[in-house]
Design a protein around this nucleic acid. Structure first.
Lengths: 185, 185
DNA sequence: AGCTTAAAGCAAAGACTTCTGCAATAATGG
DNA sequence: CCATTATTGCAGAAGTCTTTGCTTTAAGCT
């Protein structure tokens, strides 16, 4: 990705990394999230376990890395419906649909176990950026709008909370949250 | 706990269970949350590993059980300040102080990894009950009050979310959330 | 193209975890 | 108080994960 002097991110390393990432994704998808071990992963990836031990050290580090990669790679372009409520509602639905997929849910949970006193994470920064775009547009139209932080706290956080702790979360729930945060403005 | 015909919850089993619970608490407190193993736990508890294997089967089951036990055992009596804002603010501070303790945080994270498609949990039910008491009091005084669900979604959920994902969470943050949810009513 | 060396593969040793009989202990019921 | 039997302790076996030193491969540079 950048000019690293003594590193070799070239074809071979990348190949191994991709194979391992893919293997993690597969095993997660098969519901074996909590029975993943390094030898199992290595076998699935067609890679030597030693390579994983040396590159990532332990399983948590690897899972964290894969989780962040998976959760920040969004292809969704932001909705632009002409009203803040419409935008947030559509966005919240996209997000809830995304994170309730079993594989994504497992990634989220993997993130929590690996985490220790990290003050920021690409995932939330991404959501914040997305929120900002929609809020700025709304303000430009002269609409009353909540702050970015309020959107994160009252729409994003409750949804993630529900998903991570295994509580019910669907589109109606997302709509309700958007309604509440609009009321707040 | 109940009239189980063929079980023996008598002194000895209880002793072992308590020893194991205590050992889990100790190791959690020492920051070795993710390096806990059954043999390690058994050694600390002065119990034979076999006993743990036979009673709980695997580590996740045990940790989940301990986590729920720890997180639902509150001794805090609810604040009664005379106003809803005062009550919620004091309560939110109690909660945030509680769950930001390293040991509690680890319990919370343990809960997420063990969880799979559980739709309800004693922890949230307890918070809901607490919220209901304060909201009923407020309504009896004629105050405008949000719903229980709103309190859970917009005060409790964001705090837990922050804690679980390692984001900053302090009393000022709790106050802000209470302010927002009051605005909503 | 040839050289250097970061990174992966290989294999065997070591450590740890988990399981399985059998013996010992003590909680319940008569 | 005695008999029953749920539950724990013990020890050894089996299986799995992790580490380590060395060899092989190929990316980056001149």
């Amino acid at each position: 990705m950048s000019t690293t002097p003594a590193r070799r991110p070239g074809g071979r390393s990348a190949k191994v990394r991709d194979a391992v990432y893919t293997a993690v994704g597969q095993l997660m998808g098969e519901g074996k999230a909590d029975r993943i071990t390094i030898p199992l992963l290595a076998n699935r990836a067609g890679v030597n376990p030693t390579s994983i031990y040396r590159r990532w050290g332990d399983l948590d580090t690897l899972l964290e890395e894969v989780a962040v990669a998976a959760l920040t790679k969004d292809g969704d372009d932001l909705p632009d419906t002409g009203s803040l409520r419409g935008d947030l509602s559509a966005w919240a639905r996209i997000v809830i649909d995304d994170i309730t997929q079993p594989r994504r849910t497992r990634y989220l949970r993997a993130m929590t176990s690996a985490r220790d006193e990290v003050l920021t994470c690409p995932c939330w920064e991404q959501r914040r950026t997305q929120a900002k775009v929609m809020l700025d547009r709304a303000r430009a139209r002269g609409e009353q709008a909540p702050t970015e932080q309020q959107v994160l706290d009252h729409v994003i956080a409750p949804m993630y909370h529900h998903v991570v702790f295994g509580l019910a979360a669907d589109r109606d729930y997302a709509d309700q949250l958007v309604h509440d945060v609009i009321t707040m403005a």
